Amino acid sequence: MKKLINNAEDVTLEQLKGFGLAHPEIEVHFDPNYVAVAGGVQNRVAVVSGGGAGHEPLHGGYVGMGMLDAACPGQTFTSPTPDQMYEAGKAVNGGKGILQIIKNYTGDVLNFRMAADLLRDEGIDVRNVVIDDDVALKDSLYTAGRRGLGTTVIAEKVCGAASQEGYDLDRLEALCKKVNIHGKSMGMALTPCTTPQNGTPSFELAEDEMEIGIGIHGEPGTERMPIKSADEITEILATRILEDGAYTRELTEWDSEKGDWVDVEVKDITFQSGDEVIAIVNSMGATPISELYTVYAKLAEVAEKHGVKIVRKLIGHYITSLEMAGVSITLVKADEEILRLYDAPVNTPALRWGV
């Protein structure tokens, strides 16, 4: 696989330097690495996220007005370290606490939890909300429970707008949890991807094969089958999402009254006829937008058959896996609050409207 890199070990650092030069309105910090809104946050809850590089524009591309206040990039497909999250949190703390939005991968969850503990030692109230919207699986070798996929983008947009609107930390945490249980995603791959540090494909696929139920870290999916048409692929993903049951699991969250981490039971919604949804048709990296429109046409048809109305949509590159060819679909049930906050102005490198 040919890549536009210099030294494989310096990929993230060099990309951050380029990102900072391209977007001078965003502050890029090094050692430890994080990006943050210029001037910090004043008198509102800060919203912070992060994860391994290789998923761009997630998360750095969503730093800015109406979305994230800071993002911490790890090495390719590797969780950022607690000191990155700690320093980013201190930099954007506006005196009202911090909401950390975390994809459900073990390293991310553990490191963000350690960072939250460090920030609390500084007297800063921090809440962690884990996004686990991948309907492809319950458990895998790469995560405890369902993985975090495209609902992360909607959570960052909605919660960023709510922070701008003045939600306090309790209310913002509850909103983020609601978005999580309202969102479901599933992805597929036509090709694997290759990390710069490894130099070999993450898994093998024959020319006539595709992988269903992939994650965003180059891991293989849950099922391999002969390649099908765009309509057939879309129907597989959309039907699985729309007909997914009320998945129940335990997530660990901070209990302010007990002053400790506790396990709580969480249960997803199920999609019902009459629901309105926000849809994402996302390229895994190499799939062009022209092909995504073909997927969206079939998705709209399948949703209509289920009585579900798509009222907002994003079609393009939002949460990728390097140069993997493939697509993921996300549907988030949207009530009046979620829609209002989704429609609120946003101005980031990757998302911009209403300004």
Score class of each variant (00 low, 15 high):
Met1Leu: 14
Lys2Trp: 12
Lys2Asp: 11
Asn6Gln: 15
Asn6Cys: 13
Thr12Pro: 03
Thr12Trp: 02
Ile26Leu: 02
Glu27Met: 08
Glu27Leu: 05
Glu27Phe: 06
His29Leu: 15
Val35Phe: 05
Ala38Tyr: 14
Gly40Glu: 08
Val41Arg: 00
Gln42Met: 10
Val47Ile: 10
Val48Phe: 11
Gly51Gln: 01
Gly51Val: 02
Pro57Lys: 00
Leu58Asp: 01
Tyr62Gly: 01
Met65Ser: 11
Leu68Arg: 01
Pro80Val: 05
Thr81Phe: 06
Ala91Gly: 04
Ala91Trp: 01
Gly95Asp: 03
Leu99Gly: 06
Leu110Met: 14
Ala115Asn: 05
Ala116Tyr: 00
Leu118Cys: 14
Asp121Trp: 15
Asp121Asn: 15
Val126Gly: 04
Asn128Lys: 14
Asp133Asn: 12
Asp133Glu: 10
Asp134Lys: 05
Asp134Ile: 09
Val135Glu: 06
Ala136Tyr: 11
Asp139Pro: 07
Leu149Gly: 08
Ile154Asn: 04
Gln164Met: 15
Tyr167Glu: 11
Lys184Tyr: 03
Lys184Ser: 07
Met186Glu: 04
Pro192Phe: 00
Gly199Ser: 08
Ser202Phe: 01
Glu204Val: 09
Ala206Val: 02
Ala206Met: 08
Glu207Gly: 00
Glu219Tyr: 03
Ile227Trp: 04
Glu235Phe: 09
Ile236Cys: 05
Thr239Gln: 00
Ile241Ala: 01
Thr248Met: 02
Thr252Lys: 09
Asp255Arg: 03
Gly259Met: 12
Asp263Gly: 10
Lys267Cys: 13
Ile269Ser: 02
Thr270Phe: 07
Gln272Asn: 13
Gln272Arg: 11
Ser283Gly: 05
Met284Gly: 00
Gly285Gln: 03
Ser290Tyr: 13
Tyr293Trp: 14
Gly307Glu: 13
Val308Trp: 01
Leu314His: 08
Ile315Glu: 04
Ile329Asp: 11
Ala334Arg: 04
Leu339Ile: 12
Arg340Leu: 09
Pro345Ala: 09
Val346Glu: 04
Asn347Asp: 15
Pro349Leu: 07
Ala350Phe: 03
Ala350Thr: 08
Val355Tyr: 11
